[in-house]
């Protein structure tokens, strides 16, 4: 099990390097003009420009530049944001964390709803409850998260139930510890709902499908033949197997959430990686764009890694191959 984890981590490292390479090549398309443009901007001091030109050895051949770039990455030197006027690394950290909170909360809500609904629908197959859930799922998974976010904002504006975007209220600093958590939750509500609905729709259907398939498996009959209570048959024997394919999906799930989160973040003004990236793209702040991009990619790779290891933990067939 430990060796399996190490193996997966080792595979992740070249992935990250390739991501870095890709990002680097992408940057090459624009950095040339980028520095010229910067020189023309009166707000930016010549020393900064010079410092970064030195740092990235822009006068050297591409390969050397690439190695400098990667080396700098490991020192957490991501370049300079000319829009915010501070090194990128100072901007990214907090944003990364905020996006993570959002994506992770959505993941929990998604799983928390999809699995029970999926099981429920499978156990009451083709009855009224199942049909209703199925239709709602179609509707849910077809709803664009950004559209839902807009609708929710509109709804919030009319009812005042939720804050209209952002992450903290104006008076956040004055709140108690408890008050702050509650404030955060209120602000999380709209983006998390917007993000989760579509995921719940699709995950629920998959869960239902898995459950239905597993309930026909021989080992479920065996469990009954052993005289186990029905609850154990379903929630221990069947469920454990039905969930495994979902854990495989966890990796892609997380990436989809990350990706979707970016757009939703922008709409509700949640200060995360997505909003950061958008500002960066709009202001052509290249280093910020690339760093955000890399961060997104790394979050994804780590998420997948986690899912792989989780799967091995839950499915012995993978562990012992």
């Amino acid at each position: 099990m430990f060796t399996y984890a190490i193996r997966r981590i080792l595979i992740a490292i070249p992935m990250i390097l390739i991501m870095a390479l890709f990002t680097f090549l992408l940057m090459q398309k624009t950095t040339g003009n980028f520095y010229d443009l910067l020189r023309m901007d009166p707000h930016i001091s010549a020393e900064y420009i010079h410092k970064y030109e030195q740092l990235y050895k822009l006068d050297q051949p591409l390969l050397v530049q690439y190695f400098e770039w990667v080396k700098n990455l490991f020192h957490l030197e991501f370049g300079y944001s000319f829009y915010y006027n501070i090194p990128v690394v100072n901007v990214i950290g907090g944003r990364l964390w905020n996006t993570f909170i959002l994506s992770f909360s959505s993941l929990i809500v998604t799983w928390g709803l999809a699995i029970p609904f999926g099981i429920w629908a499978a156990l009451r197959r083709n009855k009224a409850v199942d049909r209703v859930i199925q239709f709602c799922s179609y509707l849910a998974l077809s709803t664009p998260s950004f559209f839902l976010a807009m609708l929710l904002l509109y709804f919030a504006s009319r009812t005042g139930l939720f804050p209209l975007g952002g992450m903290h209220s104006a008076h956040y600093e004055e709140l108690s510890w408890f008050g702050r958590r509650w404030d955060l939750l209120k602000h999380l509500a709209i983006p998390v709902i917007a993000l989760s609905v579509a995921s719940v729709g699709s995950l629920q259907r998959i869960m239902r499908g898995n459950m239905l398939e597993i309930l026909h498996q021989q080992y479920v009959t065996t469990a009954r033949a052993k005289g186990l209570p029905e609850s154990k048959v379903i929630y221990r024997h069947a469920l454990r197997n039905a969930i495994n394919p979902l854990i495989t999906l966890l990796g892609y799930e997380f990436s989809a959430l990350l990706s979707g989160a970016a757009l939703v973040e922008i709409i509700v003004s949640w200060p995360g990686l997505g909003t950061l990236m958008l500002t960066a793209v709009r202001s052509k702040d290249i280093y910020l764009v690339m760093a955000s991009f890399m961060m997104g990619g790394i979050l994804f790779i780590i998420g997948n890694l986690f899912a792989d290891i989780l799967l091995a933990r839950f499915d012995p067939r993978i562990r012992y191959e």
Binding site: M15, M19, F22, T23, L26, Y252, S255, L258, S259, G260, A262, L263, L273, G274, M277, L278, V281, V289, M290, S292, F293, G296, G297, L299, F300, I301, N304
Partner: peptide
């Protein structure tokens, strides 16, 4: 597939 789509789109 590792690359988060929307980020790549923006980049």
């Amino acid at each position: 597939m590792m690359i988060p789509g929307f980020y790549l789109l923006l980049a």
